[in-house]
Amino acid sequence: MNQRKKTIFWLAASALFLLAVAFLGYLWRDEALVTDFSRKNLAPCLKYPFGTDFMGRDMFVRTVTGLSLSIRLGVLTAAASAIFAGVMGIGAAVLGKAADSAITFLIDLVMGIPHILLLVLISYACGKGFWGVAVGITLTHWTSLARLIRGEVMQLKSSQYIQIAAKLGQSRLQIAGKHMLPHILPQFFTGLILLFPHAILHEASITFLGFGLSPEQPAIGVILSESMRYLAMGRWWLAAFPGALLMICVLLFRVLGESVCRLIDPGSVHE
């Protein structure tokens, strides 16, 4: 198996796993809420691989459901954030000096404030819950991709072949569509995928802190913060398994992003 086949294998495997989690969690969304006091506080066993909690809920089902929610929220916010980044980045590069300084200032401003603080503020201002988190993450995560795209477009604009294209009678629209877009799109998609892990981790963090999703939802942040109270009583599985699965998902998103990056990036094409 050569390097490229390996990369494709990892890409497919991680994508499949993440899709499975998202889908299963969606199927189990009602089951995740079922309480059954006859099976409360069970340690991990074959039937309940992640154990059960103080209300007798199946922690495996709850974790998968929580992660599924995280992934779906991640897709939404990463996409929104990337599109926002694209608009801002291209805007900064083509709308002239004033727009560029304004957007660059905004990027610096957002990057200058600690992520989690800004996220809590925005989420709180939007009334917390699903939309609070979504808006918060979208508005805090676009900056680095926007900066990247701005740089790319700027560089393309001054590149010799694009200047020549204009002299050969190509209109601005044609240049944007035929020269720039094919160049920017791969970067855009890589950036988008690499946004997922951030989005998911931040969603979990602010939910954990109580500024995100509401406590009755089986979100991964809620699961982790509830489990805190039981850790001291020796029920380690309540935190350990959901935490580990969260980490696996985040890592797989990274693998996914890096695989895509490696397949697209000409620098490592022949590895």
Partner: peptide
């Protein structure tokens, strides 16, 4: 000589 990928997975 260089090892290169052509189309897809061929080397």
């Amino acid at each position: 000589s260089f090892a290169q990928y052509t189309k897809g997975l061929r080397r």
